[in-house]
Simulated assay, not measured.
Amino acid sequence: MTGPDATAPPAAGPRDPLLLDSQLCFKFYAASNLVNRLYAPVLSQLGLTYPQYLAMLVLWECDDQTVGALAARLYLDSGTITPLMKRLENAGLVKRMRDPADERRVRIRLTQAGRDLRAAARKVPGIMLAGQDEARVDALRETLGEMVDTLAAMQAAR
Rank of each mutant, 00 (worst) to 15 (best):
C25S: 15
A152E: 13
L88C: 04
Q132T: 13
A113P: 04
M154D: 11
A30S: 11
S22F: 00
G47W: 02
M85A: 03
M97Y: 13
L57S: 12
L57P: 00
Q112N: 12
P10W: 10
V67R: 08
L151W: 06
A130H: 13
N33H: 15
A120V: 02
A130D: 12
R141H: 11
I81W: 01
R141Q: 12
Y53S: 04
P14C: 01
L84V: 02
D16E: 10
D149L: 13
T143R: 13
F28R: 09
R141M: 11
L70E: 03
V124A: 05
Q155D: 12
A101C: 11
P17Y: 10
G92N: 08
R98T: 14
Q65R: 15
Q112W: 09
K27V: 15
A6K: 13
G114L: 04
V137A: 13
L110V: 00
L54I: 11
S32N: 14
G3F: 01
V42C: 02
A30W: 11
N36V: 11
D116C: 06
L70G: 02
A101Y: 09
G47K: 05
N36I: 09
P51W: 03
A71L: 01
R136Y: 01
P9W: 08
I81G: 00
G145T: 08
L84I: 06
R104W: 05
A153P: 01
D102N: 14
R87A: 13
V106G: 00
Q23R: 14
G114H: 03
R15I: 11
F28K: 02
T80N: 10
A12G: 06
R73S: 13
N33L: 15
A11M: 11
S44G: 01
L38Q: 14
L144K: 04
G3D: 01
T49D: 05
Y39P: 00
L144H: 04
R104A: 06
N90F: 02
G131T: 03
R122T: 08
L70Q: 08
L19S: 06
P83Q: 03
A91S: 15
G126P: 05
R109F: 06
P9M: 06
K86H: 13
S78D: 15
D21N: 11
L46A: 08
P17T: 07
T150N: 05
V67G: 07
G126M: 05
G126I: 10
G114C: 07
G126L: 07
L117N: 00
Y53K: 03
I108R: 00
T82L: 10
L57Q: 14
P14H: 02
P9Q: 07
L57R: 15
T150W: 10
L151C: 05
M85V: 12
D77W: 09
G13M: 07
A139R: 09
D149Y: 03
A91W: 02
A135G: 03
D64E: 15
A40R: 14
E89T: 12
P10Y: 10
G92L: 04
L54T: 08
A152Q: 14
V67Y: 03
L84E: 00
L48N: 02
T143E: 14
P10M: 12
N36F: 09
R15P: 01
S32Q: 12
A30P: 02
A139Y: 00
S22A: 14
P4K: 10
A11S: 10
V67I: 12
A8R: 15
